[in-house]
Amino acid sequence: MIKQEFTITIFSENRIGILNQIVSVFTRRHINIESLTSSESAIEGIHKLTIVVFSNREEVEILARQIEKSIDVLKAYSFSHDEIVYQEIALYKVPTAKLFKGNEIEKLVRRYGARILEMTADYTIIEKTGHKGETQELFDKLDPYGVTQFTRSGRVAINKMKKEPLIDYLKNLAKNGLNTNIQ
């Protein structure tokens, strides 16, 4: 079966070891994680992880169920790229001197919808959000001018569903008289 990019979003308790538990589901099946971000979700006290893998629908569904087996995971959802809106952020460091040799860099910044984040006598930091292909393209364009550092974040993603499905999960717990607090 052909593989494509899938984004798995995971809601969990913010506990020591949770990342280890989640990652081991991928390790066991010899699946490489393309990117991973982790931070507090919109719901207070609940952590959100976003993991990108190359896989197929059947396999990511199995992965999501395996991840949910972890006691501290509330829910895991898998999405193909057209089921979500997502962004990544990239930072580029170039010598400021290069900026003043013609206006090529400034043009690139404008054309790629990037912005200058910080400028000192020595270096300039450029920031761009976008998909990996886009941030890569800007890097390829900037590199001839001497990019001294380049870094890319993992993915943040919002699904296209009407509501965050986790809210329904929590509501359901409450409806059935179950605990909805962290323990």
Binding site: S12, E13, D72, L170, L173, N179, N181, Q183
Partner: peptide, 8 residues
Amino acid sequence: PVTSIRSY
């Protein structure tokens, strides 16, 4: 005794 855990 514990009788429910929200993430489980």
